[in-house]
Amino acid sequence: MAENKVKKVAVNTKINGEEMDILVDPYVSLLETLREVVGITGTKEGCNDGNCGACTVNLDGRIVDSCLVLGVEVEGKNIETVEGMATPDGLHPLQQAFLEEAALQCGICTPGFLVSAKALLDNEPDPSEERIRHWLAGNLCRCTGYDKIVKAVSKASKESK
């Protein structure tokens, strides 16, 4: 049967500092592109409709739900995911603080929270509790009640100063 064959699109993009050329179907989300085409699965799917934040990535300095962005939209852009946070020298202070403060239980929400929180601390080194809660309002966590996540972000902000 003749399906209307849609052609894949070549996209040049930078992911965690590494420039790459990838081929994506034009209807596929950035989330699926990262997970299925690029093959990095740290970015998680919780809802696929922009309401949980598990898929949060940093796109040219802004945090976005990668399930709401198309893979073809990232031509020429800079994407940062959870996989890009630690360096060969060690964890990012946020990652370290999440471990020390027990800010994760199941951990499925953690990549999204880390990417969101990093964007906050990149711009505001010393946010208040209120500000942290506002900033993280787009990330759902069902396990922790947020208490330890908020504390971990606050701790990382103090330590990275």
Partner: peptide, 21 residues
């Protein structure tokens, strides 16, 4: 005591493999 959990490193770096991964 409150040691860092053994599976924590995989879970903060995105290496941990969940069902869909």
């Amino acid at each position: 005591t409150r040691p860092i959990r053994h599976d924590g490193y995989d879970k903060v770096t995105g290496r941990a493999q969940y069902g869909a991964d």
